[in-house]
Amino acid sequence: MSYLGKIFAIAYKDLLHEYRSRETITTMMIFSFLVVVIFNFTFDPGSSYALEAAPGIIWVAFTFSGMLGLNRSFIYEIDKGCFHGLLLSPIDRGAIYLGKMIGNIIFMTLVELLTLPLFIILFNLQFSDFLLPLLLIIFLATIGFAAVGTLFSAIAVNTKAREIMLPILLFPVVVPVILSAVNATGGLLRSDDWNQVFAWVRILLAFDVIFVAICYATFEYVVEE
């Protein structure tokens, strides 16, 4: 089996597990919907603040629901003893990391794509002109978030606090991702100059490249047992 084949085999395993249990994505999605709905209560109907706060709210929904998925990502591996099997299989540790990361990216992207229409309807947004740039921003931010999140999830699952540990570790580190994603989304909503939006996309890209590389390199130190 080629290296790429191994990576996709692991991602496929996660997708298959999810397809059969439907645990993670359902919870992530309901949670994401709830965040969007609850934040709507903070504004008077038709308030102009809603539009200003919209990018922030959408990314709170995405990152918090992503956190739920990332937490699950290694918990069920450990609980069912699957992780030792993974480590014993003749696969490079880096491939395990990339496979898990791709799985997490797919989960998060699915939830985001399903939340987005609800968000557009409830906040009455005009996104149709720049749907493609928006999807690009969402995709890049998800990669950065999942890259660091997958590594930290493998750490958090082995600590005493498990679920509480991940947000404390992850949120400070992904500040550039959240900041760039929120501002790029806001720029699109206000139909700012594309160059300004692109500056944020560049930060997202830089973050993705740097952190996929670093997390890939350090993952083997986390799982050596």
Partner: peptide, 16 residues
Amino acid sequence: VFAIVGFVDVPIVYFS
């Protein structure tokens, strides 16, 4: 591992 990831993050946080 966390310290290394966090340290690399600091300049990116600053620039963003």
